[in-house]
Design a protein around this nucleic acid. Structure first.
Lengths: 116, 116
DNA sequence: TCACTATATCAGCATATGCTAATATAAACA
DNA sequence: TGTTTATATTAGCATATGCTGATATAGTGA
């Protein structure tokens, strides 16, 4: 038996689903499940412009799915686990395959990420 | 602890989320969780054209989220519980509020549904 | 201060989406 | 058979979405 889920307004639930209904954003959120990431990491991982990455993160942040924290010149994004949406997001991510190879691929290619 | 979820391809998962990321379709699927519905019921419930209803159902059917069964002049839609997508759909629906008032509202207004 | 790096924002474009109105298809029934 | 009812399909339109390229903003460090 599954635990009781805190229900969301229909509209809010639909917004989250729509937001995660994009391959790039879903993949980003799955990556954030395990590790916080800075923007430049996403830029290295995905084959789209920095501008596009930034716009995806903006949407995720606007709805409260992720949050940001500046660390020197970098801005790290993480899942917003305090959000009322988090339970739903977490549940969805259980069905989404790990995106870790995206990172290890980068490492193999010597494009190792170094926002430290 | 939650049960182990059967994972879907990223692309497939994103398609489901995108599909359910529409208020009308999410509401439809939530209604189907409890009862099979024929098209005319949806038409009575939602404030959009019969054509629009039909198009939403088509999308849901194309991905395998719902299935249809003709009963005389009516076509009844139901959740496709055999689909590999069903576990995800079911899980999502736990976070979505009941849409039963939509039906009882109709009844109150004397617009009772009668596809029997 | 100036240059460099990281990130965000803006404008513009091509494509996707959801809707309506009109029409087609199919079952039911006189 | 012809009419009515239920549903699907098509065309066309307005708006939303995701992207790029250009530019703005902000921290870092010489």
């Amino acid at each position: 038996m599954e635990t009781q889920a805190t229900q969301l307004e229909l509209e809010k639930a639909a917004s989250v689903l729509k937001l995660l209904g994009d391959k790039t954003r879903l993949s980003m959120v799955k990556l954030l499940e395990k590790n916080d990431c800075c923007v430049c990491e996403f830029v290295a991982i995905f084959d789209i412009s920095q501008s596009a990455i930034s716009q995806h993160l903006r949407k995720l942040k606007d709805l409260g799915v992720v949050k940001e924290k500046r660390k020197g010149q970098w801005i790290f994004y993480s899942l917003n686990r305090e959000s009322e949406l988090y339970a739903l997001v977490e549940n969805i991510l259980r069905f989404v395959p790990d995106q870790d190879e995206r990172i290890s691929e980068l490492e193999k290619q010597g494009l190792r990420i170094s926002c430290e």
